[in-house]
């Protein structure tokens, strides 16, 4: 796997961006929120346009989650 995913902060004002993401879900049902998230991922993936970077982000997001939430395997 490449190591090109940017892991340093990009935004001078991260609060604005964070709020943007939260506001995206204002007044939505859980189901609608899920759809909005999925659409957001699709749009951003297309914008990035680099499968290797998307693969890196996917792996990081997955590993980070599993390392915290993985159930004890039998």
């Amino acid at each position: 796997m490449t190591d090109r995913l940017k892991k340093q902060a990009s935004f001078d004002s991260p609060d604005d961006v964070y709020q943007l993401i939260i506001d995206m879900h204002k007044g939505l049902s859980d189901e609608e929120s899920q759809l909005v998230n999925a659409k957001m991922i699709v749009l951003l993936a297309n914008h990035i346009g680099d499968a290797a970077i998307i693969a890196e982000a996917a792996q990081l997001a997955r590993d980070n989650t599993l390392s915290r939430h993985a159930k004890e395997t039998v």
């Binding site: 759809l35 999925a38 659409k39 749009l43 297309n46």
Partner: peptide, 20 residues
């Protein structure tokens, strides 16, 4: 299923979703 539906809904309005 969620991603499939998201892509199909988006594809109506946005060209870049159609490829998916």
């Amino acid at each position: 299923s969620l991603f499939r539906d998201a892509v199909l809904e988006l594809a109506h309005d946005v060209e870049c979703a159609r490829g998916f």
